[in-house]
Nucleic acid binder design. Structure first.
Lengths: 155, 155
DNA sequence: TATTGTTATACTCTATAACTATA
DNA sequence: TATAGTTATAGAGTATAACAATA
C-alpha cells in the first residue's frame, strides 16, 4: 500500500480544541432547549439572569466582563429582559452612567424554576460521566477558567 | 445581613455546561486566528481540509456526519475550497449522487503548514495545563465524544 | 419514494463604529 | 478625554424548506 501523504499526520478527532468544542457545543445546545423553548430566553439573557439571581444590583458592565461578552450584546439582553418584565433598572446613585439592575419578582421566580432544571441537567451529565470523571473535568476547567480572565487565550 | 433570595442558590461560574463552554470558546477562538487571519479559512473549511488530509476521497455526506455539521454548511465550505483551488471533486464512480473529494497539491501543502501550527498550539495548551491535567481532560472528552454520535445530547 | 447535494431565505450572533450622556 | 450604554449596520453562522439529479 502506498502512502500519498506529503506532510505530518493529523487526526482532528484527537485534536484537543476540536474535542473540547464538539463536547461543549453538544452539551450547551442540549441545555439551551430548557430555557429557550419554554421561556424564550437567549443564552445571553439566561446568563444575565443567573448573575442577577446570585447578586442583585450588578451593572451591565460588570456582567459583561464576567461572562466575556460584548457590551452591545448585554445591552440588548438587558433591554429584552426589561421589556418582558423580568428586570428593572435604575440610574446608579453615585454615577449616573451606570445602571443598577434588579430582578423583578417575576424574573426571580422564573429563574428559580430554571435553577432546578439546571441542577437536574448537571446531575444527568455527572451520572453519564461518573463521579470521578466529573470531578476531574471540574478540576481541569477550574484550572483553565482563571487563565481566560488573565487574557491567556486572547488574540 | 438579610438574604432576599427566594429560590435555591445557583452559581453560574460553577455550572459545568457554562464552564465547558467558556473554556472551549476561548480555546477555539484563540486557535481560529491561526487559520482565519492568514489563510482565510472558516472553521468548517478547516475541518473539511483536516478530514481530507487524513483520508482522501471522502464525500460531503461522510464529513457532514463526522463533524456534526449541516450538509448545507459543508456544501458551501466545499464550494469555497474548490474555487480557491484547494480541493477538486469528481462524481462518484458507482453512485453519481455522491461527489468524491480530493485535496489538490496546493490544498495538501496548505494543510501541512496548518498541522504544524495545530500541533504547536496543542503543545502550548498541554504545557499550560500540565501533563496530568491534559491527560485527564483527554480521557474525559474521549468518554463524552462517543455519546454525541449516539445522540445522547440531542433534543 | 429516498438520498446527495444545491439554492434561497430568514433568523440569530458577532464585530465594529458612531452616537448619547455622564464624568 | 474617558467611560457606560445605545443604536445602526454589515458579516458570519445556523436552520429550514424547496429544488435538481440520481438511485
Amino acid at each position: 500500500m502506498s502512502n500519498d501523504r506529503q506532510g505530518p499526520a493529523f487526526d482532528l478527532g484527537r485534536f484537543l480544541p476540536y474535542m473540547l468544542n464538539q463536547v461543549a457545543e453538544a452539551v450547551s445546545k442540549s441545555f439551551q432547549v430548557r430555557y429557550q423553548r419554554e421561556f424564550g430566553l437567549s443564552r445571553t439573557q439566561w446568563r444575565i439572569l443567573a448573575h442577577l439571581y446570585a447578586q442583585d444590583g450588578l451593572t451591565a458592565k460588570v456582567i459583561s466582563t464576567r461572562i466575556h461578552e460584548d457590551k452591545v450584546s448585554i445591552s440588548r439582553g438587558v433591554a429584552a429582559l426589561e421589556s418582558s418584565g423580568r428586570l428593572s433598572r435604575q440610574p446608579g446613585p453615585s454615577d449616573r452612567r451606570f445602571e443598577v439592575l434588579h430582578l423583578t419578582p417575576e424574573g426571580r421566580e422564573l429563574f428559580a424554576q430554571l435553577t432546578q432544571r439546571a441542577h437536574a441537567f448537571e446531575a444527568d451529565l455527572a451520572r453519564t460521566l461518573g463521579a470521578e470523571s466529573t470531578n476531574e473535568l471540574r478540576k481541569v476547567l477550574e484550572k483553565l477558567l482563571p487563565l481566560l480572565d488573565q487574557g491567556h487565550f486572547d488574540s
